[in-house]
């Protein structure tokens, strides 16, 4: 915020007048503010828990001396601001604390678990986009100007229902059909490539359905735009008109909502990982919450939060690349 406003008040000269610089500074400022809020929230989390988190973690039977020693070690008896300062310092050095239950540095726990979650999220994202974009574009072209009413109804109905089904329920359903009944695919784990199929589908289908629906609506709108008529007047092939002219414009409008869907996909891994006993952060955070291993929880919340913020930032950058007007609009 501070950065952004200083730019706004400074005279528009030199490098500051360049839209990309202004956009970059402003967007970076927003990212930093959000990061600060996130870090502060994750710091406060442990202090908002009623009672003594160390006592809770070690159990009611743990000797008082041990609890006191652990509190001392974690610095929980220091003044709050000192703790906050210490927490920020540790974060910068990559020190996320120690897991009480695993007796391991939290950073190590995360390093072990993160790749599995990232693989799942990226694959699911890729699959969702790979399904949604061609489907949405095709449907948009086929149902433009009131064509194909029936196709539109069938598509919209199906995508609404698929979009509402929560990912973990879809996961259960997929397990039942493809793992239990048909026995084609593994029921859990990530040991073989085939084990990726069901969790990725469980995560991707809902977002793909919603995204495809948004893209279709946007395509129908964009295909009515004057500049599409201009492109047709140039007698470009239909493919160029649809993909070269209409799609980028349909995507800019879809991206904002699409970004929300993608971030919810990041979080969706938590539930889906638990359906498939996926050895990622999602199953880790749940067991850590149940074991009251709060330093791990704190760190994982931070990781997810950062993931969400990064996705949001990337979406804004993609938006700016696709439609340069979006940079100015924010001014």
């Amino acid at each position: 915020m501070a950065l952004a406003s200083s730019v706004a008040t400074s005279p528009r000269v030199g490098v500051w007048s360049h839209p990309w610089v202004r956009f970059g500074v402003r967007r970076l400022g927003r990212l930093l503010v959000s990061l600060w809020v996130l870090v502060t929230a994750s710091f406060l989390m442990i202090h908002l828990i009623p009672g003594d988190p160390v006592r809770a973690a070690l159990g009611p039977t743990a000797p008082a001396a041990l609890v006191a020693a652990k509190r001392e070690e974690m610095g929980l008896d220091d003044p709050l601001l000192a703790q906050y300062w210490h927490y920020l310092q540790s974060l910068f050095t990559g020190d996320l604390g120690t897991s009480i239950t695993l007796q391991l540095p939290v950073s190590q726990v995360i390093a072990q678990r993160l790749p599995a979650t990232l693989a799942l999220a990226f694959l699911a994202f890729a699959v969702a986009v790979a399904i949604a974009v061609p489907l949405g574009v095709t449907m948009g072209v086929r149902t433009r100007r009131g064509h194909g009413r029936r196709t539109e109804l069938a598509f919209t109905g199906t995508s609404v229902v698929l979009g509402i089904i929560p990912d973990f329920l879809l996961g259960v359903l997929l397990v039942y059909v493809f793992a239990v009944t048909l026995g084609w695919l593994p029921v859990a784990g990530n040991d073989s490539p085939s084990a990726y199929v069901l969790p990725v589908l469980a995560l991707a289908v809902g977002p793909a359905a919603i995204l495809a629906r948004i893209i279709r609506v946007e395509m129908v709108t964009v295909l009515q735009a004057d500049f599409v008529r201009t492109a047709r007047a140039k007698r470009l092939p239909a493919r160029t008109v649809h993909l070269g002219h209409a799609l980028p414009n349909a995507l800019t409008a879809s991206l904002t909502l699409g970004g929300l869907i993608l971030t919810s996909m990041v979080a969706g891994t938590v539930l889906v990982e638990n359906v498939f006993a996926w050895p990622g952060l999602g199953s880790m955070i749940v067991s850590s919450i149940l074991n009251k291993d709060y330093q791990v929880v704190q760190a994982i919340v931070l990781v997810y939060g950062v993931g969400v913020l990064l996705v949001n930032t990337l979406v804004d950058v993609a938006l700016a690349l696709l439609d340069p007007r979006s940079m100015i609009r924010e001014d």
């Binding site: 971030t263 919810s264 979080a267 919450i289 919340v301 939060g305 969400v308």
Partner: peptide, 25 residues
């Protein structure tokens, strides 16, 4: 307003997990 906008950017399930830790299982 700014606080709300930041909070809205995070998916519901993530917020729910965060609060579930604070309010207890």
């Amino acid at each position: 307003l700014a606080g709300t906008n930041i909070a809205v950017a995070f998916p519901g399930i993530l917020l729910a997990l965060f609060f579930a830790v604070i309010f207890g299982v």
